[in-house]
Simulated assay, not measured.
Amino acid sequence: MHSPKLQLEGVTHSYRSGKQSVAALAGIDLTVNEGEFVTIIGPSGCGKSTLFNIIAGVEEPTGGTVILDGEVNGRRAGKTGYMPQQPLLLPWRTVEENVMLGLDIRRVPRKRAQEQARELLKRFGLSDFAGHYPASLSGGMSQRVALLRTVLFHPSFLLLDEPFGALDALTRLSLQMWLQELWQSLKASILFITHDVREAILLSDRIYVFSARPARVLRVVSVGLPRPRRPEQLATPEAAGLEQELISLLLKEQTA
């Protein structure tokens, strides 16, 4: 068994809304091992993005323990590659310059940053778009660029918050296959949020099912489909049964 990249133990979070305290997370236990692809699914507004903010060091938990790379409740900012739902590419920077953004922030020398960005763009088939600006890119291409920017910022642990949610079905499927290739090539650890149960099954080693807010873990499911995964595997009895199990859990939470 690989060592844990991330461990959450009893993580809680509350925030103020007027004079009231609102609980967002209710004792989350979660582990992402080295090189593992883990997905969180749950009802809208249950606190998944809040949890990502805590892991990334943007917010602090109200209670519980966050262990990242073996460091207990330490400084986490800059230790993950965090990609939000929207690509948020800077319109005045080219594709290459957008991919370099994290290195620029870290004051990596310009020549070395360019070399790293160009190598990554070439490795994952985007070299021809290096000089393009975001306005000329399709939605799927913008997501690819944003993902490579996230990878270059911190390639060993990626937090991906519904990165394909706004894409059409065919583009989404293409990006899922591309992400799988990227993940296996980099041997990265990924924590992924999605509302798409089939996407979770296709990509994940394990799936955490969250309850409605305040979020707690309802179930942890291992996905035993062989890798590399292909879309046709979703039609197998194992995948179909898992899909029904997960949908039933989510529907109960949606109507609770």
Rank of each mutant, 00 (worst) to 15 (best):
K5M: 14
L8W: 12
V11T: 10
Y15M: 10
Q20R: 15
A23G: 02
A24F: 07
I28E: 09
I28D: 08
L30W: 10
G35W: 10
G35R: 08
E36T: 06
V38R: 07
I41Q: 03
P43I: 05
G45M: 12
S49D: 08
T50S: 11
G57W: 13
G57Y: 12
T62C: 07
T65P: 01
V66W: 09
L68C: 13
G70E: 13
E71V: 15
G74C: 06
R76K: 12
T80R: 07
M83K: 10
Q85S: 09
P87C: 09
L89V: 08
L89T: 06
L89S: 08
W92L: 10
W92H: 13
V95T: 08
V99L: 11
L101P: 07
V108K: 09
R110K: 15
K111Y: 02
K111G: 07
R112G: 00
A113G: 07
Q114E: 15
A117Y: 06
A117S: 14
R118V: 02
L120I: 13
L121T: 10
F124K: 03
F124I: 06
F129H: 14
A130C: 04
Y133C: 04
S136I: 06
G139N: 03
G140C: 05
G140A: 03
R144S: 09
R149D: 12
R149T: 13
V151Q: 11
H154V: 01
L158M: 12
L158N: 03
L159H: 05
D161Q: 06
E162S: 02
L175V: 03
Q176A: 06
Q184T: 04
Q184G: 03
S185T: 15
S189G: 11
I193H: 02
H195N: 04
D196F: 04
V197W: 05
A200F: 04
S204K: 05
S204D: 02
V209R: 07
F210K: 06
S211A: 08
A212L: 08
R213G: 06
R219P: 04
V221T: 08
V221K: 08
P226L: 00
R229F: 00
P231W: 04
P231T: 00
L234K: 00
T236Q: 01
A240T: 02
I247S: 01
T255S: 14
